[in-house]
């Protein structure tokens, strides 16, 4: 099992994104939701989901291949400067999985076409895409748990969050097979397709799954803050 990688092509029917999910992510809690948003989501959500082509997977490393320090994670010869917050999440991890997931370039194209038509629709579609790819991440965690058995797993921890620089994406992807899930990086470490996620998940019998440490993170306007609140 170890040092193996797993890839999945889950059908969209595996995901149950609702208009209410998106409304919540948009911020509407105990305030009036504009009719335009309700109507927009009603027509956009089915179309948006039809434009998603989901690919996801992970690679699990052997315990002997990793060393976790207070600020770094060494996987084989690759040193990831994960910083203190993420190192805390990995406390008591025996090993890690590197994951990636995307909803495909077709979705990028779909958003791009909407941009030229209606700014509200493109914003709603963008939000649907962001939430869907996070749902794929949630789904992937369940798959990982099924494979590792009784061990615990950490939250998903990604470059660009919690003090881990996004430029480290290049190192992260160097540990995955080429063109993993069809995701590529540009010089700025931007993933293409844009609606993609990547990162690590700690695995360990004695590992405790911690909440995201938003209170001590300096990334004030992070997307995960809204999601964590739910």
């Amino acid at each position: 099992m170890m040092n193996d990688y797993f890839t999945f092509l889950p059908p969209i029917s595996e995901f149950h994104l609702t208009e209410q999910n998106i409304i919540s992510v948009l911020g509407y809690k105990n305030v009036e939701i504009p009719e335009a948003v309700k109507q927009g989501l009603k027509s956009l959500l089915p179309t948006a989901l039809n434009n998603a082509v989901i690919k996801c997977g992970f690679k699990i490393f052997e315990s002997k291949d990793i060393i976790i320090t207070k600020e770094t994670l060494l996987i084989k010869a690759v040193e990831l400067k994960i910083d203190k917050i993420i190192a805390l999440h990995l406390k008591h991890a025996d090993t890690v999985a590197i994951f990636a997931a995307t909803i495909g370039s077709e979705f990028d194209q779909y958003i791009s076409e909407l941009k030229n038509k209606d700014i509200l629709d493109s914003y709603l579609a963008d939000t649907i895409g962001s939430e869907l790819v996070e749902n794929v991440g949630d789904w992937l965690e369940i798959k990982l748990k099924n494979i590792i058995g009784n061990k615990n797993i950490s939250n998903r921890l990604s470059p660009g969050y919690c003090g881990w620089k996004v430029s480290e994406q290049h190192k992260l992807f160097s540990l995955l097979p080429p063109d993993f899930c069809g995701i590529s990086l540009n010089d700025s470490a931007l993933m293409k397709p844009i609606k993609s996620i990547s990162g690590i998940i700690g695995i360990g019998e004695n590992l405790k799954r911690l909440d995201y440490q938003c209170k001590i993170c300096s990334l004030e306007h992070c997307y995960k803050r809204n999601r964590v609140k739910d």
């Binding site: 504009p34 948003v37 927009g40 914003y123 709603l124």
Partner: peptide
């Protein structure tokens, strides 16, 4: 005041 969100701004702007 947190009583409206980005979609409200876009709807009004349109």
């Amino acid at each position: 005041q947190g009583k409206a969100f980005i979609p409200n701004l876009l709807i009004a702007s349109k």
